[in-house]
């Protein structure tokens, strides 16, 4: 049979990549998570995680940290995105660029700069570890919240707002009944892009001298202590949490006919 090149063959490199770097490691993780040091199947690792107040505490701390970061990002990003999208400015794209530009600088550099500023204000970073972490993460993740919301608001058909006004809605009603619900896909997308990394990105905490563990650093600590089995289980649990979260937001998005945003 003669060999014929078709478009689907272009996917082969990616499929190989997926197999080697995603599927195989996952299988390894699942294997390690459900085996003990002796190599026999066990559920001990799972029970250990949920039986240990320290690990549960870390999960709770990560969750709260991510939640607070997401809320702060949302509170800052929404008004900014709204102002950008609805300003009659011709230089809109320049302003948007200003908010995106920090992403062009290496993030450890950015954090180092932030560290200096915070030290100047607080005197010693050790006094407010949680606050510093929230500030650091917000600084880091804010563009990921602004962009999808801005995109959604910018695309919003302005005649819908005129129609609502025409039907008797004042500015507040217009916002709550039209603008806000129609910008939800952008908000959900932004939340997903901030919340998930905020649960795991321990580099921010490290650099701002917050020694509390979050999920990312917890896994790291297990692996550096050569506890492959415990570490794998925690990774798997985190993966499950992310899956649930993604599915929840995905459901919300697809129910909206205008759906789609940055991710």
């Amino acid at each position: 049979m003669k060999y014929r090149f078709s478009r689907k063959h272009l996917a082969i490199p990616y499929a190989l990549f997926l197999l080697v770097f995603v599927v195989l490691p996952l299988i390894v993780i699942v294997y390690y998570a459900f085996t003990g040091n002796d190599g026999k199947p066990t559920a001990d690792n799972l029970l250990n995680f949920f039986g240990d107040p320290n690990t549960l505490g870390t999960l709770l701390y990560s969750f709260i940290l991510a939640l607070v970061t997401t809320c702060v990002c949302l509170l800052i990003a929404y008004p900014v995105a709204y102002a950008l999208a609805f300003s009659g400015l011709k230089s809109k794209s320049v302003l948007v660029m200003l908010f995106i530009m920090p992403m062009w600088i290496n993030f450890t550099l950015r954090l180092t700069a932030l560290k200096e500023i915070l030290t100047l204000i607080e005197g010693n970073l050790a006094f407010h570890p949680f606050l510093n972490s929230v500030v650091g993460m917000t600084y880091d993740f804010l563009p990921f919240m602004i962009l999808p919301i801005y995109n959604q608001l910018d695309r919003l058909d302005k005649s819908l707002i005129e129609a609502a006004t025409d039907l008797g809605a004042d500015k507040v009603k217009c916002f709550t009944r039209i603008t806000l619900p129609l910008s939800m896909p952008g908000v959900i997308s932004g939340v997903a892009m901030v919340f998930l990394p905020a649960m795991t990105n321990y580099v921010v905490l490290d650099m701002l001298y917050n020694s509390t563990y979050i999920m990312g650093s917890l896994i790291g600590s297990y692996f550096s202590a050569y506890d492959w089995h415990g570490g794998s289980m925690i990774s798997l649990i985190l993966l499950a949490l992310i899956c649930i979260f993604t599915l929840l937001t995905r459901d919300n998005e697809s129910s909206d006919v205008r759906g789609g945003s940055l991710i």
């Binding site: 058909d157 005649s159 819908l160 005129e162 129609a163 609502a164 025409d166 039907l167 039209i178 619900p181 129609l182 909206d256 006919v257 205008r258």
Partner: peptide
């Protein structure tokens, strides 16, 4: 009240 050119029905 206005009937808009592109209808402007609320999609949500």
């Amino acid at each position: 009240n206005t009937v808009f050119q592109r209808y402007a029905l609320f999609p949500h």
